[in-house]
């Protein structure tokens, strides 16, 4: 009992520790694809460290919520991540929250992120919040539909059951999983503010969404916000990697199983990072009002997945 909670704690810390690495990897690959040398792989850690020791500057117009929000965003994102199996399957922490609670916790983080954007009372913050809420409003149903497809297949909304069900199934190609996979990838791009929905490197006023909400943050507040968004990217990466390709994840708590689980998940994430960097190099950012069409495609895929499950697979 205690041992399994310790592993859960270890896994939660692993999320915090690995998140900057993933973003560093994506940036590095992208730089190489663009014929640049790029920053070192560990640069995001250095950035976070620098931000953490820097002085904080808070606008005159900010309310207490402005200073509270980074903690809530970070903590909610982290708790959401901690419930997703990373290296081992049957952890007690996964019982606390199923997929719907996970989406809810991410929603809580987003709510405070958007409020923080509006708190200072600048034009950009409001713009970012408004756009973020539009994107999330369209992405969230697609996300829930995709996970519902998985949940209905496994007859459970617990991620552990979904993964075990998939493992027990063997390499069975279900059409509904293909659709759900497509939908979840599109949603992940939108939710993590990646190209083609948002550009994480932009500071061009009229195109930014996520960055616009963070515009007034500095010091450790900014570090927490950045870290939270890196954890979110890792969370979606793990979700896609471990739900659709769960093979290799540790099924018991032996050291060997955990070690294999860690190596395998790192490999999966490296491949996903490669794919993300390639996509970001070859695609261009869309206009804001093209995003609904993009997310409607995700919703359509998710619905097709659900319907193909309900119609083709339930009776069979």
């Amino acid at each position: 009992m205690i041992y399994s909670w310790l592993i859960a704690l270890f896994q939660a810390l692993l999320y915090v520790a690995l998140a900057p690495l993933l973003i560093g990897w994506v940036r590095k690959v992208r730089a190489r694809l663009q014929n640049r040398r790029g920053a070192p792989l560990l640069q995001p850690y250095a950035d976070l460290r620098k931000l953490l020791i820097k002085e904080i500057r808070v606008p005159h117009t900010a309310s207490p919520l402005f200073r509270l929000a980074p903690y809530i965003v970070f903590v909610a994102t982290w708790l959401a991540a901690a419930t997703v199996p990373l290296v081992a399957l049957d952890l007690p922490i996964a019982q606390i929250a199923d997929i719907i609670v996970l989406v809810g916790l991410l929603g809580l983080a987003r709510f405070f992120l958007a409020l923080a954007g509006m708190d200072v009372g600048t034009a950009f913050g409001g713009m970012g919040a408004s756009r973020e809420m539009l994107i999330s409003a369209l992405a969230e149903p697609a996300m829930l539909m995709a996970v519902f497809t998985l949940a209905m297949t496994a007859h459970s909304t617990s991620l552990v059951s979904v993964m075990s069900h998939h493992l027990a199934d063997g390499f069975l190609l279900r059409p509904s999983y293909l659709f759900a996979f497509g939908a979840l990838v599109l949603v992940a791009l939108a939710e993590c503010s990646r190209i083609p929905v948002d550009n994480p490197t932009t500071h061009l006023e009229l195109t930014m969404v996520h960055e616009a909400m963070l515009l007034e943050y500095s010091g450790r507040h900014l570090a927490l916000m950045e870290w939270a968004s890196q954890i979110k990217l890792l969370l979606y990466g793990v979700l896609i990697a471990n739900v659709f390709f769960p093979w290799g994840i540790g099924q018991d708590f032996g050291l060997l199983a955990l070690g294999i689980g860690l190596v395998v998940v790192l490999l999966k994430l490296a491949v996903l990072g490669l794919a993300l960097a390639t996509a970001e190099t070859t695609l261009a950012k869309m206009r804001l009002f093209r995003v609904p069409a993009f997310l409607n495609l995700a919703l359509l895929l998710a619905l097709l997945g659900l319907l193909s499950h309900v119609i083709l697979e339930v009776g069979a």
Binding site: E55, R57, V58, P59, H60, T122, L215, E216, R220
Partner: peptide, 14 residues
């Protein structure tokens, strides 16, 4: 643990 310096300022707003 971290330094507690914090200053108030005008919003940056780009």
């Amino acid at each position: 643990r971290a330094p507690r310096r914090m200053r108030r300022r005008d919003p940056w707003d780009c």
